[in-house]
Write a protein that binds this DNA or RNA. Structure first.
Lengths: 210, 210
DNA sequence: ATATTTTACTTAACGGTGTAAAGTTAATTA
DNA sequence: TAATTAACTTTACACCGTTAAGTAAAATAT
């Protein structure tokens, strides 16, 4: 019994080590430079050993993808105590962009890169953490609507649109499409866009304008 | 004279053929499946011949990237006659999303894929068409502000934010991140989000609300 | 008219990728 | 003690982008 549990533990440890190494390479050098062979070399196993622990490369990045969503939900959990839904909505927007700025490679993997999505379609993988994050936004917007904000709007479509707004900012930054912006505004562009998005929220309910 | 001009013409023709073939493969099978070797096979030349016409793979996709921007500007040119800037802004948003839906692979190349950007940084390539497209948006927003819309906002930052909004919608769709949305709303999600964005514009200036 | 150079292209090769099949060695079970 | 299983490696396949060296024909120079 103790031997077989030790073996199981060791298997689990190697799996974790592969994932940890993939994560390191990935954060240091990005997705493209993280190859099965690179990972294998760093953990001092042959490349094919990795296939005993993960179905394929997409499977590895799907696991990291999940880690990313768990991390994002940690960012969000800190906002659960914000009782006013409109304030929470603004806080979510800021926090989302912060997450992207602070975890660029993760963000790319979660919302831009195609690799982890291949894996989801393959093996109907649990997408729970992703739904939780989006649910937090949708729920907040539903509460906003109940309080009289965004009158008559569909909460899910609005949630998607709000997500699109912040995702747009993050992905244009991460994928380097901001060269058209003047040098002056390119400095801290994400922050400026974030402030602009919040300003848009505020202007949408007329009574809030002083 | 006639011989050398013919030769020049033939060189130009082969360059165009490479580009045309790359475009076909790229639209049919996407970026990943479009390799130098695939292109070469289809035009019945050796792979290395392509390097006599293009610096590298990024260079080919940078050329297609430019084609994409020319096409986008054609979409936009049709809106130049819309005299009211606020109407034009709404039309630009619709048109931008239409462009993305109708030219998915091009859109991906222009605003998501990293390949063409590598090439821009390498050889400070002319980015004129990209600037023209963004300039059209910025100009329209500047006119809006002059007419009393979006009072007190910075036109360039607002232009970037509007771009982020529509880009967010398009890129989440193209990169398949919309599974979290309920089946009901996932149908024509881009259209719904586009309508929502326009609704947001309208709610931003209080007097327009009936 | 012959020799040289240039042009346009190809062959071969390097170093990299993901991944599958077959082989090996040691531990476990029969 | 023999058969089986587990864990891992070696080898190999089919790709990829790209470079260096080679070739044959055309253009130019002598």
């Amino acid at each position: 019994m103790t031997i077989s549990t030790r073996k199981e533990r060791q298997k689990e440890e190697l799996r974790a080590k592969i994932l940890q190494t993939a994560k390191e390479l990935f954060i240091e050098h990005g997705f493209e430079q993280t190859s099965i062979r690179n990972i294998a070399e760093r953990i001092e196993y042959s490349p094919t050993t990795i296939y005993l622990y993960f179905k394929d490369k997409d499977d590895i990045f799907h696991a990291l993808h999940l880690e990313g969503f768990i991390l994002l939900n940690q960012y969000f959990r800190a906002l659960e105590h914000v009782s006013d839904p409109f304030e929470r909505l603004k806080a979510i927007s800021k926090s989302y962009i912060n997450f992207a700025v602070e975890n660029g490679e993760f963000y790319d993997l979660m919302f831009i890169n195609r690799s982890p999505i291949n894996s989801i379609n393959k093996e109907d993988a649990k997408w729970e953490e992703g739904k939780r994050a989006f649910g937090f936004l949708t729920g907040t917007i539903t509460e906003c609507i109940e309080k009289g904000y965004f009158k008559g709007m569909n909460s899910e479509v609005l949630a998607f649109t709000v997500w699109s707004m912040v995702h747009g900012v993050c992905s244009l930054e991460i994928r380097n499409r901001c060269d058209v912006i003047s040098e002056e505004n390119r400095q801290d562009l994400s922050d400026k866009a974030c402030a602009m998005i919040i300003e848009i929220f505020e202007r949408m309910h007329p009574k809030a304008i002083q």
